[in-house]
């Protein structure tokens, strides 16, 4: 057994074990931590499966931000209610039996289905690479996302906006715990980290045209910066017109995307059919707007509600 095979086996075992812990651990906090660790191991797995774009996104979004959201929810939960004893309930094992039987059936059916797929898989690899010259970018994943199938991505940006609308409609943001003073050390670290995150986000956006990266990975870093701003208590002053700025930022991605799509129609083309010679510029334009929207959306999801008018607002990056 070579070292690479050993690594693969280790990855597979870790994935299974962490998923098991995340589902079955009696202590909720440990389950959340297992889930975050699962995301990091998945990021390694993406790298192993030649999907570095996904590795970046998984580490930042799937593991990092989802984990932050869950931990924040966990804290709100423990703030609100006294911890209930999570001991074994009588007959719990028997009650869970149908669930596990169902899981086993699903596992069997799904494995059979995916293993009986033809090899080599009939994909669109050749087509995707053949048209790469005309797409304006050289990273095939970015080409799929923002050129071949940009309609999907347009709708995805719409889903992001919808999520914020849903969260804002549901409630006013709960007050961040006031009794957490950010010491000078934390503040100093954040003042160093946040610009770094913003620069790295921009770098990922730019490099996404020809290497792993792109608006989603960059936006995730921007979202991380927003979370740090919120956690560090670096909110500035009473909000005066900032909410308008925030709303504009949230809308920007979708608005620019639609505008570019409609713009393409003016010169006798289909919706979102970019002219070949200007594809790179248009993709960069869309991605920049999307980057800002994605970052702000993720920050707003972490904020967990609409900003209360009249109170302090967070600084927008």
């Amino acid at each position: 057994m070579t070292i690479v095979q050993l690594f693969d086996a280790l990855l597979a075992l870790l994935l299974l074990w962490l998923a098991w812990r995340a589902v079955t651990d009696a202590v909720l906090f440990r389950a959340v931590v297992s889930f975050v660790a699962l995301g990091l191991v998945l990021a390694l797995t993406w790298f192993r499966l030649q999907a570095p774009d996904l590795a970046l996104a998984e580490a930042a979004v799937g593991s990092g931000l989802t984990g932050a959201l869950m931990l924040a929810a966990l804290r709100r939960r423990s703030d609100r209610s006294s911890p209930t004893p999570e001991g074994p309930v009588k007959g719990a094992a028997l009650r869970q039996l149908p669930g596990w039987v169902l899981a086993f059936v699903i596992f069997g059916a799904l494995s059979w289905a995916v293993l009986s797929l033809p090899i080599p898989a009939q994909g669109l690899t050749e087509e995707a690479h053949a048209s790469l010259e005309k797409s304006g970018v050289t990273n095939p994943v970015t080409a799929v996302l923002l050129n071949y199938r940009s309609y999907d991505t347009l709708l995805e940006i719409g889903v992001l906006l919808l999520a914020v609308v849903a969260v804002w409609s549901l409630r006013v943001a709960p007050r961040l715990r006031p009794g957490s003073p950010s010491g000078p050390l934390l503040e100093g670290l954040l003042r160093f980290l946040i610009p770094l995150l913003i620069i790295t986000g921009g770098y990922l956006l730019w490099i996404g045209a020809f290497a792993p990266g792109g608006a989603f990975q960059g936006g995730a870093l921007l979202g991380g910066a927003c979370v740090l701003v919120l956690l560090g208590g670096l909110t500035v002053g009473p909000m005066t017109g900032r909410i308008v700025l925030l709303r504009t930022g949230l809308w920007a991605g979708l608005a620019v995307f639609i505008a570019v799509g409609l713009g393409a129609m003016t010169s006798d083309r289909w919706f979102l059919e970019y002219p070949v010679e200007r594809a790179k510029l248009l993709i960069l334009l869309i991605e920049t707007a999307a980057l800002i929207s994605i970052g702000l959306t993720l920050g707003c999801l972490f904020y967990g509600g609409r900003p209360e008018s009249g109170s302090s607002d967070r600084s927008s990056p």
Partner: peptide, 21 residues
Amino acid sequence: DPVPHAMVLTGIVVAVCATGV
């Protein structure tokens, strides 16, 4: 194949939104 990669990338971002809500 880059197409499933793009789908998963979309999926990861949509999943975090759904989780937030």
